[in-house]
């Protein structure tokens, strides 16, 4: 995977283009002029999250003052207390963890198996199957949501957590990603394994899969982001607040509780903090995921 974090290397030969003549400064400016662009941009990008965290800790009475103070007069957890005691948000969080967890596990297993099969095995129907997979990448969800809704209602899957889980069990993108990765591996290792008497299954699990960790990380992050943040499908398929996902649940606050800002922002924190923390820890893998889904997806 492209490693963008390490990119602006000190030696010009190894680095990207615009980094080449780095140390020329405008006279009178003790720092690179790019700071004048980047610092304000970074602040503007950070403000919404900063506001979200601050507002979630601000007493409700502060948030309906005009003008609303930027820094709260006191910090309080009452927004969170009211969120956890008056709404099933923990249940929704659990639902989302179940949906995202099963999506990730299933994606990792099914897409890596299929990706390997399409990359390495020769068998009847392989090309047709792979062509079908690639063709579906172009079909937009809007075309699929009505018949999928009808289908799920026929099989009694609507209004249950299963409705949110099933569409996330595998994806064309995941299969494609894993196939591209396996194609890039050298054949020799697998051939050696087969000569030593391993079966295909053993080759896959013992030799190939351990090498696939970067691709599996990309796939896991891609699936996590998509399934954790999905809104439109749960909105269509789930009408029962016991089976709400977190994202769907918090949008229901926008009705009756739309002015309880500290509760709303606390809900927002619960819905985004796990991914923010994860992003901060695994920034490199996230960026690799974005790059891959952009350039090759």
């Amino acid at each position: 995977m492209t490693d963008l974090l390490e990119a602006p290397a000190p030696a010009p030969a190894a680095s990207g283009v615009p980094a080449t003549p780095p140390r020329r400064r405008r006279p009178g400016l003790p720092f690179s002029p790019w700071h004048l662009l980047l610092a304000p941009t970074a602040i503007v990008f950070a403000i919404p999250f900063v506001e979200m965290f601050l507002a979630s800790l601000t007493p409700a009475s502060d948030l309906v003052k005009v003008p609303t103070p930027f820094i709260p007069s006191t910090l309080t957890l009452s927004g969170y207390a009211s969120l956890f005691t008056t709404s099933p948000v923990l249940l929704w969080l659990g639902n989302t963890v179940i949906v995202a967890g099963s999506a990730i596990v299933s994606h990792l297993v099914l897409c890596s198996l299929a990706g390997y099969g399409f990359a390495r095995l020769r068998f009847r129907g392989r090309n047709l199957g792979f062509f079908g997979i690639v063709a579906t990448i172009m079909i937009p969800t809007q075309v699929l949501m009505i018949p999928t809704y009808v289908l799920f209602s026929r099989i009694g899957l609507l209004d249950s957590l299963g409705a949110a889980i099933v569409p996330w069990l595998a994806s064309a993108f995941g299969i494609f990603l894993m196939r591209q990765f396996f194609l890039s591996l050298p054949l020799e290792l697998e051939e050696a394994g087969l000569l030593d008497g391993c079966t295909r299954r053993q080759v896959f699990f013992r030799i190939v899969l351990p090498l696939a960790k970067p691709a599996l990380a990309t796939l896991a992050i891609f699936t996590l982001l998509g399934s954790w943040n999905d809104l439109v499908w749960p909105l269509i398929a789930i009408n029962n607040d016991q089976a709400f996902t977190l994202q769907l649940g918090i949008t229901t606050f926008q009705g009756a509780r739309r002015t309880e800002w500290s509760l709303l922002m606390a809900a927002n924190v619960v819905a985004t903090l796990p991914l923010i923390l994860f992003f901060l820890v695994a920034q490199k893998q996230f960026i690799a995921t974005m790059t891959f889904s952009g350039l090759k997806g």
């Binding site: 700071h35 980047l38 970074a42 990008f45 985004t272 991914l275 920034q283 960026i287």
Partner: peptide, 30 residues
């Protein structure tokens, strides 16, 4: 701008990239 070796570039990059993980629901409420 981010493709150069200046001070704080990692901080700038993180600040600009983090919103990518925010869901539409959270972004909308925000």
């Amino acid at each position: 701008a981010l493709n150069r070796r200046i001070r704080f570039v990692g901080l700038y990059r993180t600040a600009i990239f983090v919103p990518f993980v925010a869901s539409a629901a959270a972004t909308g409420i925000l």
